[in-house]
Design a protein around this nucleic acid. Structure first.
Length: 472
RNA sequence: CGCGGGGUAGAGCAGCCUGGUAGCUCGUUUGGCUCAUAACCAAAAGGUCGUUGGUUCAAAUCCAACCCCCGCAACCA
């Protein structure tokens, strides 16, 4: 059995679960389930990113202990992940003691590529952050949020010498040794890589307390991304455990907004540690609401919980995996969601199961016990291997629709009326086997429904008392 | 001249690399069927393929110019 490791981006705990997180989980989960289905041993990471000034600030605003705050948030996210049916095997919180300890080990191992330097720039005491020169000019030297003049400030930071890895990394990206999907993101990253300066990877403790302390320097705390990115290997036990069976990851799923960290800083860290680069970085797009970015100020945020509660988790996964473009930004609207549910899940698949089960039950059809329906078609596998999940799904769906057509053409009810028992039995058995075959391919996408379908046609066939995908 | 993607039926998209009757899904209309969740199956209507010009016997497809939208460049999942 081949070992495969799949990762999700760990959400930052300064907000609640939203539809973008769900997207990330759905994609990674389908991938993980597919790999398991095709005979691999799969480890699948999920987790929460809990350090950084924004989180500390948020806790402050609410007047609670930071640890209490993140404990609650992490719980919320865990519940959400469970609700999505994410089949993860390993979970990491960046405040886990073992994670913090391992991150410090990682820092030590990277020491050759880290140096201390002064940074001088414009700083807003209101925002508590440095701003770029460009921003300074655009705002005429005054922070638009706080109406305060920017101050010239100097601080010491540790830097990761990105230049040590640029050449190697560029080649790895160009040759697809580390494949970046989709291709247009790869181009963006290559361009960005050229321009990337060394990366500041720590903050003075006076400015940021809520983070992992830099080893042997009590005045500095690690920048949250160093800590966060490390989770992918600390959760496997690095450095004290040998992770070579699992690492490099078969695929790492990230949102397009954080691709840069995963495609530049993260591989630089890995190279510094002497570890191989992930095989694939899958960068997915944003989910829009009616063509617009979801934002609290516009008030068009779609709550994933609400969507799941409407028609169940499989319907949610179905929509996000088939009708939301994996790589480009694309649109969620309730109308599209309802249409997909009613026309496709209920009418095509749900109804197909219902009519076949009824036909079988009325005519006393049973399947042989050893009927093997575990095969995946080659085309399906090819598409899944390329992370073209929606296309693979389309392919399987054609089979589902084809079955509806075949029932109409073969008219088993007429065979029953004419007493053509043998023909009828053969006709229905073939149809059911083909349905179950397709059902296997559906299982990574629709785990719950798939299980139900398998159960319906096992042993004594009975049509389900409540439809698979009830309409309202 | 920053880099990149795109503009094809009411909507969402494929086709473009390797020119040759413009295709898919949803929606609309009509017909068929009755095993089924008013579900299923079939057929039809609907497009000057962003604009202009060029190459060619032939251009959605190749070339040029222009118009428009979007992504990245800037710690938004």
């Amino acid at each position: 059995m081949t070992k495969k490791y799949i990762t999700t981006a760990i959400p930052y705990m300064n907000g609640n679960p939203h539809i973008g997180h769900a997207m990330d989980y759905c994609l990674a989960d389908v991938c993980a389930r597919y790999l398991a289905l095709s005979g691999n041993e799969v480890r699948f990471q999920a987790g929460t990113d809990e350090h950084g000034s924004k989180i500390a600030q948020k806790a402050d605003e609410l007047d609670v202990e930071v640890q209490t705050f993140v404990d609650e948030k992490a719980e919320t996210f865990k519940e959400f992940i469970a609700k999505l049916g994410v089949s993860y095997t390993d979970f990491v919180r960046t405040t886990d003691e073992w994670h913090e300890r391992r991150v410090q080990e990682i820092w030590r191992k990277l020491a050759d590529h880290i140096y201390l330097a002064k940074y001088e720039g414009w700083y807003c005491t209101g925002c508590e952050r440095f701003i770029t020169d460009k921003e300074y000019e655009e705002n005429g030297g005054v922070c638009p949020d706080h109406l305060k003049s920017y101050e010239k400030l100097e601080e010491e930071n540790y830097y990761l010498r990105l230049s040590d890895f640029k050449g190697r990394l560029k080649k790895a990206i160009e040759t697809d040794e580390m494949l970046i999907l989709p291709d247009f993101r790869k181009k963006e990253i290559l361009k960005l890589l050229e321009e990337s300066p060394d990366m500041s990877i720590s903050r003075p403790v006076t400015q940021l307390k809520w983070g992992v302390p830099v080893p042997d320097d009590p005045t500095q705390v690690m920048y949250v991304w160093v800590d966060a990115l490390s989770n992918y290997i600390t959760v496997l036990g690095y450095p004290e455990e040998d992770i070579s069976g699992w690492w490099p990851a078969a695929a790492q799923f990230v949102g397009k907004d954080i691709l840069r960290f995963h495609a530049i800083i993260w591989p630089a860290m890995l190279l510094g540690l002497g570890l191989p680069l992930p095989r694939v970085l899958v960068s997915h797009g944003m989910v829009l609401a009616d063509g617009q970015k979801m934002s609290k100020s516009i008030g068009n945020v779609v709550d994933p919980n609400e969507v799941i509660d409407k028609h169940g988790i499989d319907a949610f996964r179905y929509f996000f995996l088939r009708h939301i473009d994996t790589f480009a930004d694309s649109d969620f609207t309730w109308e599209k969601f309802e249409n997909a549910y009613n026309n496709e899940l209920a009418n095509d698949l749900g109804n197909l199961v219902q009519r076949l089960a009824t036909l079988a039950s009325k005519n006393g059809i049973k399947l042989e016990n050893e009927t093997n329906v575990s095969k995946l078609s080659l085309e399906y596998q090819e598409l899944m291997d390329k992370f073209e999940f929606a296309k693979a799904f389309d392919l399987t769906w054609e089979k589902v629709q084809g079955l509806n057509k075949r029932i109409d053409e073969e008219k088993p009810w007429e065979l029953a009326k004419n007493g053509e028992k043998e023909k009828l039995g053969e006709c229905l058995t073939t149809l059911i086997v083909d349905l179950l075959q397709a059902n296997t391919e559906l299982s990574p996408f629709l785990p719950e429904a798939s299980k139900k379908i398998a159960a319906i046609f096992a042993g004594e066939i009975q049509p389900p008392t409540t439809p698979l995908f009830p309409k309202n």
